[in-house]
Structure formats: C-alpha cells, structure tokens
C-alpha cells in the first residue's frame, strides 16, 4: 500500500484508573467517592487495547498517534506509558473546573480538544473499569458528528472505510463497514498489548506532552464539572448482601476436606 496516501492520523483516548479487583475498597467520609490513597493507578484495561490497536494501525499504514486523557497530574504516568508504547504525542486536559465531570461532561472536554486536530480514526476503550459508563466514546462521536462502532474485536482498514467485527452476546459477532473518519471503541482481547521496552521509555522522554485547561479549550465552567454533567452521585455504598456464600474455614487440609465432603455429598465423585 502507498504509505503516504494511506497515512493515518489516529487519536486514542485513555483513562488513568485505580486497580480495584484485588484491593480493599472503602467509601470516603462524604459518601460520594472511594478512598484512593492506597490504590495503584494504571491505564484502563480497555484503553490498553485501544492504544495497541492505534500503534498497530500506525505501523501498518504510517501516520501518527496522539494519546489524550482528561485527568490530574498523576495521569501523566499513563500518558508516558502510551508514549513509550508507540504514541507520538500526548495531551492531558486538566482544570479545577473539570472535577466532578461525568461521562457526558468528559466527552464535551475531549470534543473541544479533538475537534480541531487532524484525525482519521479515534480509538477508545468500550468502557472504563472504574465507573463503567461505556458512554464517553459514543457521546464524543456524536458531538464530533462522526460514526462510531463499539465493542470492536477486529479492524481491517480499506479504502476510505473500515471493516470491523463488533462483539455481540454469547460469542456472536457482527461484521460492519464504517466510513472514515470514525470512532472505534474496542473490546478487550482485540490484540495483545505489547510490553513497554527500555528503548520505548527512553524515546518517550523526548516526546511532547501538552497540558491544556478550561480556557485553552474555549470551554465555560458551566459546561463541565458537576454543572455540565447529566449525573450527580448522591451516595456510594458497599452493596447490601442478599445472599452470602458459607465460608469454609480452617487450615488448608481442613478446608480441602470440607470441599471434598460437599462434592461427595452431592454424589459427584
């Protein structure tokens, strides 16, 4: 393929999220958020695959990848990771006024940052592992006036369009064609995200990481944060227990013996 002609400008939106699968989670005193001091943050699982897909497309067709996030300074580590893994530029959108933004307000912030950038494809994750809205990408596409496909499991670039596989339920997929420019929200497992190399980290240091705020983006305070959101968190709480497993206690031998008993009592061994 002719590289110059097919060269792609790719934007990938990423989020810096706490890893919570194995952590102890507590609700903070105000009852509207969780305590994050002891949590480890990293790139959102879905965005990790989006980043890899962006870099794979660039390697195939030529072009440039710009990683964008909305978040506090800590989120720079996620952007640095993107740069080390093959993104060419990074932009962090941050402002005191952005605090409390829901998915809708976040999409508005991204929209202002992206609308004047050149792009053929925007890649995002289908959802974020923390608040799980699965909204930002599709709202962003609508604000930009471009088509979107979510739950993407396979991407094949064609002339002026993309052939994509989209995941449905129960192992079924649908194959679609979507015109470019388009936004593709990827599903986990679409590729194998590469590890960060020492070379990558070194190169990342020379790459540009830009920080933009409310005024730079031409946003008004009431458009973002809590005011510009659809959703207000009233209360966070640990889910009530409707049914709880009977916890088997004792040493390893004892617990194992108990499991064997249960299995035997059901006539399974």
């Amino acid at each position: 393929m002719d590289k110059e002609e097919n060269r792609m400008d790719i934007i990938v939106c990423v989020k810096h999220v706490p890893e919570t699968a194995e952590a102890e989670i507590t609700v903070s005193p105000g009852g509207k958020s969780i305590n994050t001091e002891d949590l480890v943050f990293d790139i959102n699982e879905w965005d990790d695959y989006a980043l890899e897909e962006a870099v794979l497309l660039k390697e195939k067709l030529g072009g440039a990848v710009t990683a964008i996030t909305v978040g506090p300074q800590d989120a720079d580590s996620t952007l640095r990771k993107c740069l080390a893994r093959g993104a060419d530029k990074a932009i962090r959108l941050t402002d005191k006024a952005f605090e409390g933004s829901d998915a809708f307000a976040t999409a508005k912030i991204l929209h202002k940052a992206i609308k004047d950038l050149p792009f053929d494809i925007i890649l995002t994750g289908t959802q974020a592992g923390d608040d799980g809205y699965a909204q930002v990408s599709v709202v962003l596409a609508e604000l930009l006036g471009i088509p979107h496909v979510t739950m993407v499991k396979k991407v094949e670039p064609k002339e002026g369009f993309m052939r994509v596989n989209r995941e449905l339920e129960g192992g079924l997929q649908e194959v679609l064609e979507v015109k470019l420019p388009a936004l593709l929200a990827v599903q986990t497992g679409i590729n194998e995200p590469r590890y960060v190399s020492i070379m990558g980290i070194r190169k990342a240091r020379e790459k540009e990481l830009k920080v933009l705020g409310l005024a730079d983006l031409g946003l008004k305070e009431e458009e973002v944060g809590g005011c510009g959101s659809w959703i207000t968190v009233e209360k966070m709480f640990i889910p009530p227990v409707e049914k709880e497993a009977e916890i088997l206690t004792g040493g390893l031998d004892e617990v194992s013996a108990k499991i064997v008993e249960i299995i035997k009592s059901k006539g399974l061994v």
Partner: peptide, 18 residues
C-alpha cells in the same frame, strides 16, 4: 434516580439525573 454498580461490582452508587 438510578442505582449503578462501579469498581467491578464492589461499590454501588445512587445517583440522580439532571
């Protein structure tokens, strides 16, 4: 008013819409 689950089902959120 809605109830949603966040953080992989470890926390519930009660939220209101504009």
């Amino acid at each position: 008013v809605v109830v949603r689950q966040v953080y992989g089902g470890k926390v519930n959120v009660k939220a209101s819409l504009r």
